[in-house]
Simulated assay, not measured.
Amino acid sequence: MLDIVIQSRKAAIVPGFEVKRILPYQLRRMVGPFIFMDHGGPVSMPVPAATNLDVLPHPHIGLSTVSYLFSGNVTHRDSLGVEQVIKPGEVNWMTAGKGIAHSERFEDPAMLAGGELEMIQTWVALPEKDEEGEPSFMNYTAEQLPVFTDKGIWMRLIAGDAYGLKSHVHTTSPLFYLHVVLDSGARFGLPREHSERGVYIVRGSVEVNGTTYTAGKLLVFTKGSDPLITAVEKTTLMMLGGEHLGERYIWWNFVSSRKERIEQAKEDWKQGRIHLPPTDNEEFVPLPKDNSRPAGGPPPKALS
């Protein structure tokens, strides 16, 4: 049934903006290819606070970032020259491959006037054959994504395949990623197509095998189990998983199957070999010291 229950922890993305850090976790580093998961908000942002929350240009290698918003807007700019306003319900899938830099800025007038922001960002590790591929960015509107409804159940398939649905979002390994809303008392089971499966409770609570689990927890289930999940109240979930890719190293914003590749990425960023976004290149996040614990955690460490 349940393999582990992960309680989210507080982490600061920039000064004054704390998120709930779900993955990686010391006792469970990955769920399928998902190697990182943050839940930001909900937070209201008057102008002075919003301008301080901007995430300056920073690098990635060896992964895809997946940004999904419940409310608010974020402006994405990357070293490919892409400039995209990320809106609620859309999928924004950036594949770093051999290296990309991007920024995330809060520029929407409605949000600057005190509107609310809430978002989930995940990182999906790439298969070894794709780790050094060309970087790319794709935006998929909410209308392009499959939606399923039943009595008391609404779900949007963000990526992959589950419950007989298939998303057109391009992925590089077998996975599933779902946004699910349940009315109180609604029941459903996990998708059986994938061996590793997790359910993150965004808000509300669920009951599994007689135990109630509340918001901020990620429930990771054992392979082959078929639990029944019941919403105790109106509940929002993010469901994710897939097939395991093998051991990965992670440090800061870098992911790789090879420890030495992480070291190369550090030097590439210091030497400017990963280009800044052409429309956002006047400031950037410097490489942290090795004893710091930024987004990706401590110095290169194998995750599996």
Rank of each mutant, 00 (worst) to 15 (best):
K98P: 10
V285E: 13
L63N: 12
E90K: 00
M45R: 08
H168R: 08
D108W: 09
L63R: 10
V181R: 13
M1H: 10
P286Y: 01
L27M: 10
G204Y: 02
E283C: 07
L112Q: 14
W252A: 05
P127Y: 05
R21V: 06
R293M: 03
E132C: 10
V199D: 04
E193M: 06
K270F: 01
H39Q: 02
L56K: 09
S184N: 00
E243Q: 13
E263L: 11
K20P: 02
S292I: 00
G89S: 10
V181M: 03
I153E: 14
L112H: 06
S136V: 02
V255A: 14
T51R: 15
R192C: 03
L245D: 13
I120K: 00
F137Y: 12
E243H: 13
M119K: 07
H275E: 07
G204K: 03
K270C: 06
S292W: 04
L53M: 15
S304K: 13
G272L: 04
P174V: 06
P174T: 03
R187I: 06
R28F: 08
G89C: 02
V220E: 04
I229C: 12
F284I: 02
E282Y: 05
Q84W: 11
L69I: 12
N291C: 03
E107H: 01
G272E: 06
D78N: 15
M94A: 14
G16F: 07
E233M: 01
G296K: 01
W154M: 05
D3Y: 04
